[in-house]
Nucleic acid binder design. Sequence first.
DNA 1: ATGGTTGGAATCCAA
Length: 262
Amino acid sequence: MPFTLATWNINSVRLREPLVLKLLEEEQPDVLCLQECKSPVDKIPVENFRALGYPYLVARGQKGYNGVAVLSKIPITDVGDMDFAGLGHARHVAVKLENGVTVQNFYVPAGGDVPDREVNEKFGQKLDYLTEMRDWFHAERPEKAILVGDLNIAPREDDVWNHKQLLKIVSHTPTEVDHLAQTQDAGGWVDITRQDIPEGLLYSWWSYRARDWSGADKGRRLDHVWATPDISNAAHSSRVLRDARGWEKPSDHAPVFATFDL
DNA sequence: ATGGTTGGAATCCAA
């Protein structure tokens, strides 16, 4: 049975409810993982999602910031959340599908502007968050699992529009890339998107500040789909729905899709 | 080297 999953930093699920509905209607993923919902869980607009055939929601939320949600056509169970780096933020939730697959949905801290933990506390928190993720995966040894989300790091040279120019820009510094690699290794995670699309520039985020985001195309691949080898060994395919970045009142992130033959 | 945009809550912070 093919199983399609999408991950999307929505940048306010209440403001962009119409965009979520458009995506569900047009693309029909089985499971949609959202980040930056910026809403308490009880204020997420579930009615219209339900009407479109997505009756299941598992989420963590807080007022104004952060927030993660899993919307599903198929039954999912809430299997908890983690609060890495002691931030008290709603940045993670995990669900289990009926076939035994676990889906981990993450929103890693952005890390502020200056890539130095001595002068920018947020950068330190981002690194600590990744280190605690690493330690958790080292202890838990995930199996039959998929990890998605806005990891706020573009690890490869071809995950950014200009590698050299971004080496000191938060999201592409060698320190962050190293922390992300350690987190990935600790869980034995396979980068599904890059296994499916191994060559060429690939982005999932374009700044709102660009005059012409598509023409300039100064993007970064911040949104990821990983899986454990028992899942990645099955056939799979991936794509980034770049079009969604051009929708009316868009999120600055595009959804990333993966389909697995499970 | 700088400023550019957006969302949410409160007149600024985070991204």
